[in-house]
């Protein structure tokens, strides 16, 4: 079931992406409403990260096109922010938290210019929002997984964009960080910003998001969470795997085991 909207903030039309002739995404066609907090879910290898990378122009498209704010990406880059998976960079890189967050300002600084005082102030403000102020001068190699993710979020906040793409921001973070991050995302969404998040924990989908995109190479569903987060559509997205998952989930719930690691 695919719900389309008028005046979408993001429109993806007939998007196909292939890696060495094998399709990873096939004919994805969808529209997303402004101001929504969107969860992109699907099994491993379903093309969730690929979808975001394709929208951001980081990988070549085999067919289709993408429009953000009704324009091609190049015209609206400054209004769009992308948070890569935190594993995609080398955290041993010699840099402090502040150095990384100020990178969020680079697009606004312009070619051949250095970030100014105002840019550092914006970075410090973003660092405060993710509650990392006391770590601002800490070397990034000394951060925990949760702190690394907060730094990436702060860098995106410093960009002050209107549309955010986040690749697995909840992967490998502690419970406190997860709570802090979702709090910030909800706040952003309340301010009319649109946030699109690759997510893999089905338990929290209804609590976190108001719009859900379900992918498994093809687009299975896209719509308000209450309409499309149904057993039937999830079955279609996850195939046989979900029954095992839901059985295990039920079992755990019955026996009162915690379903997530509390760290």
């Amino acid at each position: 079931m695919i719900v389309n909207v008028e005046n979408p903030i993001l429109e993806v039309h007939d998007l196909t992406v292939t890696y060495s002739r094998k399709p990873v995404l096939w004919g994805v066609d969808m529209t997303l409403p402004k101001g929504s907090l969107v969860g992109v879910i699907g099994p491993n290898g379903a093309g969730k990260s690929t979808l975001i990378k394709a929208i951001m122009g980081l990988i070549p498209l085999s067919s289709g096109w993408v429009e953000l704010f009704g324009s091609p990406l190049d015209d609206v880059r400054k209004k769009v922010s992308y948070v890569p998976q935190k594993e995609s960079v080398d955290w041993d890189f010699p840099a402090s938290v502040r150095d990384v967050v100020v990178m969020g300002r680079y697009a606004k600084v312009g070619l051949f210019k250095r970030p100014r005082k105002a840019d550092y102030e914006a970075a410090d403000y973003a660092i405060a929002q993710v509650k990392m102020t006391e770590f601002a001068n800490r070397q990034i190699s000394q951060l925990s997984g949760g702190q690394q993710q907060r730094v990436f979020l702060a860098r995106a906040l410093a960009q002050n964009a209107d549309l955010y793409f986040m690749d697995e921001p909840f992967a490998g973070v502690d419970a406190a960080t997860e709570k802090a991050i979702i709090g910030i995302l909800k706040q952003m969404s309340a301010q009319g910003k649109t946030v699109i998040v690759v997510h893999h924990d089905l338990q929290t989908v209804t609590k976190y998001f108001d719009w859900v995109v379900q992918l498994n190479t093809r687009l299975v569903a896209s719509g308000p969470v209450e309409e499309v987060f149904t057993q039937e559509l999830l079955q279609e997205t996850y195939g046989g795997k979900l029954t095992i998952l839901s059985d295990v989930g039920n079992l755990l719930r019955k026996q009162g085991f915690p379903t997530r690691d509390v760290t």
Binding site: K53, M56, G57, L58, D74, R77, V80, S81, Y82, P84, S88, V89, D90, F93, A95, V100, M103, Y106, A107, V109, L111, F112, K113, R114, P115, R155, Q159
Partner: peptide, 22 residues
């Protein structure tokens, strides 16, 4: 000196650099 920002960012996080148009 002139390309410091761009060199630094493309070295640390190439995906983010391309996303902001570098």
């Amino acid at each position: 000196t002139l390309g410091y920002k761009e060199l630094h960012l493309t070295t640390f996080d190439p995906a983010f650099a391309s996303a902001i148009g570098i």
